[in-house]
Nucleic acid binder design. Sequence first.
DNA 1: TCACATGGTTTTATAATGCAACCTAATGTA
DNA 2: TACATTAGGTTGCATTATAAAACCATGTGA
Lengths: 150, 150
Amino acid sequence: MNCGIAQAMSALGDRWTLLIIREALLGTRRFADFQSNLGIAKNILSRRLRHLVRRGIFEKFDAGTRGQRFEYQLTDRGRDLLTVVSALRQWADKWVYGEGNEPLVVKDRRRGRRVPKLRLRDADGRPLELEDLLIEPGPGANDETRQRFG
Amino acid sequence: MNCGIAQAMSALGDRWTLLIIREALLGTRRFADFQSNLGIAKNILSRRLRHLVRRGIFEKFDAGTRGQRFEYQLTDRGRDLLTVVSALRQWADKWVYGEGNEPLVVKDRRRGRRVPKLRLRDADGRPLELEDLLIEPGPGANDETRQRFG
DNA sequence: TCACATGGTTTTATAATGCAACCTAATGTA
DNA sequence: TACATTAGGTTGCATTATAAAACCATGTGA
């Protein structure tokens, strides 16, 4: 399928993967910490991490001084999922928990102020609604995509 | 689990749901159109749509003039997933397809310019990196969350 | 040497997914 | 009126993913 969402879902689209990435964005690096913070079965965690390493989202390396002690660290590709994870959290904060019931708040460390919601904006910074968008086939479009959006 | 990502994944976290929402954001409303545009099995589509209606992300109504003809429309809660879907698409455009190979481009309809990437910013509009963020327990935090982030 | 922590794999059971075939109620068409 | 078609599903069955629990290999500290 010639579609970014499909590609993203094929890398991230199971119940655990984005939770694992959320944990990693919060600083978790070790197998046992992922396991106990998430409450995920070890075999599932093992498989997900292997998959994410293959996809280039995590890097696994031995951080032991005299012996093995593995750590999983996000690559640049993985760290760039911060936007996705933030968007999901903001959606749930608004529509699942509701304003004033958020389990976590995200602040700007320098100023201590809450980080504003992500929002699509035009090049001048004006907010965009769904109706303001125009979808066109891009340089990597295949025939099917060109036919549908051309 | 006292966590927005977990809540969001429980509503959206299977391989098809976000693709269905993507389709709906592009304007698709009818069962058969979802099915043929996505190539999803009808029973899966049926189940996912029912689930999404129960969750308040779609609304199903009969748009037939003399007979039934159902349509599925996004609610406000569903339309607000535009940010999530956009973040996923932007991630895949960058890290799966690579710049210059995007299957679709999103433009501002009024000006015809490409919509800039979503990015976390502070209240003054300055871009924020992961390291700039401070995570704190919110008003809806439970004991476990307070312990971990307090 | 013994116990224990880390970082897994294996086994077995249950749940979710996916394909193909079938079904029903309205409409359209000769 | 008969016949086909479209919309919107359901049912059955095979495949795949997830989960819990047990087991295991390596290293480490007392």
